Simulated assay, not measured.
Amino acid sequence: MEGPIGIIDSGVGGLTVVKELRNKLPNESIIYIGDDKRCPYGPRPAEEVRQFTIEMASALSKMGIKMLVIACNTATAVALDDIRELFNFPVVGVIVPGARAAVTASTTGKIAVLGTLGTIKSGAYSMEIAQQSPSATVFPLACPEFVPLVESGQYKSDYASTIVDRTLSNLAGKDFDAAILGCTHYPLLEDHIKKSLPANVKVISSAVETVHDIERELKERNILNESKQSVEPIFYTTGLRTAFHEIVCDWLFIENPDVRHLTL
């Protein structure tokens, strides 16, 4: 089935899912919406995040998508069930795959969760990890400064390293062997994060595991694109096209990406 896969995020974070999806399923066409104008979602009230998520899903529904991926952890935490009820296409979130990957990777059952204020406050990861491994111990940590670092394009800077190191110092003394990057923005800070955590800690990106779920869902529903012709993604941003364009070029290695402005 040749319809596009829609991917939504509060900003550029979901590009980490796009990157994995292009590597794993290069023949699938992708339409992406990043709500940069209203980013970050983490500090916002749940009802507001839910409304924003519905707006993005509605826009993609009109574009004829065959599947929706909510690549934002905060939006997944508060709106996944609502979106599944409102639309007919299959909807994949990022929390269940991320929790599953961490439970599998951890040998001690002690897992840190790095996330936005909204994701941590929701307790979504703690609940999902407990469901998959009742004996697990979870150390949740809100990292409110991480998303602005990524959105502003400073994720490779020394300043970013300082902010990450300072934030993760709150986990000092905690004993864990796996850490979930519970926000799709965070893989862009992964090098800094790994340097700030003990060497034995496995850092888990929900983006990689989410793509496994996407592939499985496509196959089960018989809507995998069997065409051998790859199509370049289309990107929409509600914010500034120039800033978004630069991050797409840098992170996805697309020389001249198709970045358009969208008003929701």
Results as ranks from 00 to 15, higher is better:
A57L: 11
T210S: 02
I5V: 05
K228E: 08
A142T: 04
E151L: 08
P40E: 12
Y159R: 15
C183G: 03
A136L: 09
L15D: 02
L252A: 03
L117G: 11
Q131S: 15
S10W: 09
K110P: 04
T162I: 14
L224N: 05
E215L: 05
G115P: 08
S169H: 07
Q132T: 10
L197D: 08
H212A: 12
E85Q: 13
K228N: 09
P140R: 05
L189Q: 05
T74L: 06
S227A: 13
K121D: 02
I54D: 08
A79H: 07
L114M: 12
T76P: 08
T137N: 11
D250Q: 14
V96C: 11
K62L: 05
Y125V: 05
Y159G: 14
L86R: 09
G115K: 07
V203L: 00
I30M: 09
Y159I: 15
P233C: 00
A46E: 09
S10A: 13
E47W: 08
K62V: 02
S61P: 08
S133K: 14
Q154A: 12
I65M: 06
A199P: 07
K62M: 04
Q51D: 15
L171N: 10
G109P: 06
F87L: 01
I65P: 01
V94F: 01
I33T: 01
A160R: 04
S206F: 09
I120N: 07
R44T: 10
V18K: 00
P233F: 00
A59H: 12
E226Q: 15
I83N: 02
R44H: 11
Q131Y: 14
W251S: 11
Y155D: 06
L181Y: 05
V91A: 02
S227H: 11
R50V: 12
I214T: 03
V201Q: 02
A105S: 03
K195F: 11
R221Y: 14
P140Y: 04
V147D: 04
I54W: 11
V113G: 06
A59T: 10
T167P: 01
Q229G: 09
K121F: 01
V94I: 04
P233E: 00
E48Y: 13
L60C: 00
E47K: 12
N170Y: 06
T137R: 11
I204G: 04
A99M: 13
E48C: 08
I31Y: 07
D158N: 15
E85L: 11
L168D: 10
V113W: 05
G6N: 05
Y159F: 15
E246A: 15
L262T: 12
P26E: 06
G118I: 07
L149I: 11
S126V: 13
E20W: 00
E220W: 08
C249E: 13
Y125R: 05
V69Q: 06
A160D: 06
E246L: 14
Q51A: 14
I83C: 04
A124E: 04
D213T: 13
I180Y: 03
N27G: 13
V103P: 01
L80E: 09
L171A: 13
S196W: 10
K228F: 06
G98E: 03
D258G: 09
K24N: 05
S161F: 03
G3P: 14
I180F: 03
G13F: 00
F146I: 02
E215D: 08
L114F: 11
K19W: 01
P198C: 12
Q154E: 11
S157Y: 15
L171I: 11
E28H: 04
K219I: 10
F146K: 02
T76N: 13
Y186S: 06
